[in-house]
Simulated scan of single mutants.
Amino acid sequence: MPKAPIRDIEIAEEPIRLGQFLKLAGIAEDGGHARELLETEQVMLNGRLETRRGAQLRPGDVVAVGEQCARPILH
């Protein structure tokens, strides 16, 4: 089964918090949904489980939720 492509999401400045990035990338509908994804252990950051909404991302970090993958890049 082929892996999902990684979408590049432009951010204005670094770092960006994981909860904010999930919303910006369209993975989470809102802050509550982002919290739910993290609390139910559905979020992977660079191949490792991440449950901290405030985890700070830098350009090149890869966030995966199910089949969706995205990474922040500087604008």
Score class of each variant (00 low, 15 high):
1 M>T: 11
1 M>A: 13
2 P>E: 13
2 P>M: 12
2 P>I: 13
2 P>G: 11
3 K>W: 05
3 K>V: 06
3 K>C: 00
3 K>M: 06
5 P>A: 07
6 I>K: 10
6 I>S: 11
6 I>E: 00
7 R>K: 15
7 R>N: 12
8 D>L: 13
8 D>G: 05
9 I>L: 03
9 I>E: 05
10 E>R: 02
10 E>Y: 02
11 I>L: 04
11 I>H: 03
11 I>C: 06
11 I>F: 02
11 I>P: 03
11 I>A: 01
12 A>P: 08
12 A>W: 01
12 A>N: 02
13 E>P: 01
13 E>R: 04
13 E>F: 00
14 E>C: 01
14 E>D: 08
15 P>F: 02
15 P>Q: 00
15 P>Y: 02
16 I>H: 05
16 I>K: 08
16 I>Y: 01
17 R>C: 10
17 R>V: 06
17 R>K: 11
18 L>C: 10
18 L>T: 09
19 G>A: 11
19 G>E: 04
20 Q>N: 14
20 Q>L: 11
20 Q>F: 10
20 Q>T: 12
21 F>Q: 00
21 F>C: 00
21 F>Y: 03
22 L>Y: 00
22 L>K: 05
24 L>F: 13
25 A>M: 03
26 G>A: 10
26 G>S: 14
27 I>H: 03
27 I>W: 02
27 I>V: 14
27 I>F: 05
28 A>F: 03
29 E>G: 02
29 E>C: 12
29 E>I: 06
29 E>D: 11
30 D>C: 12
30 D>R: 14
30 D>Q: 09
30 D>H: 15
31 G>P: 06
32 G>M: 02
32 G>N: 12
32 G>W: 02
33 H>R: 15
33 H>S: 05
33 H>P: 03
34 A>R: 01
34 A>P: 01
35 R>M: 02
35 R>K: 15
36 E>R: 15
37 L>V: 02
37 L>Y: 03
38 L>G: 05
41 E>G: 07
42 Q>P: 09
42 Q>E: 11
42 Q>F: 12
43 V>M: 11
45 L>C: 04
45 L>K: 10
47 G>D: 10
47 G>V: 04
47 G>L: 09
47 G>N: 04
47 G>Q: 02
50 E>N: 02
50 E>T: 03
51 T>S: 09
52 R>F: 07
52 R>K: 15
52 R>T: 07
53 R>W: 13
55 A>E: 00
55 A>I: 05
57 L>A: 01
58 R>T: 09
58 R>F: 02
59 P>A: 14
59 P>K: 11
59 P>R: 14
61 D>C: 09
62 V>R: 14
62 V>I: 15
62 V>Q: 12
63 V>S: 00
64 A>W: 07
65 V>E: 04
65 V>C: 07
66 G>R: 06
67 E>H: 13
67 E>C: 08
68 Q>S: 11
68 Q>C: 09
69 C>T: 15
69 C>L: 14
71 R>M: 14
71 R>Q: 13
72 P>F: 05
73 I>S: 12
73 I>D: 05
74 L>N: 03
74 L>V: 08
74 L>G: 05
75 H>Q: 13
75 H>A: 10
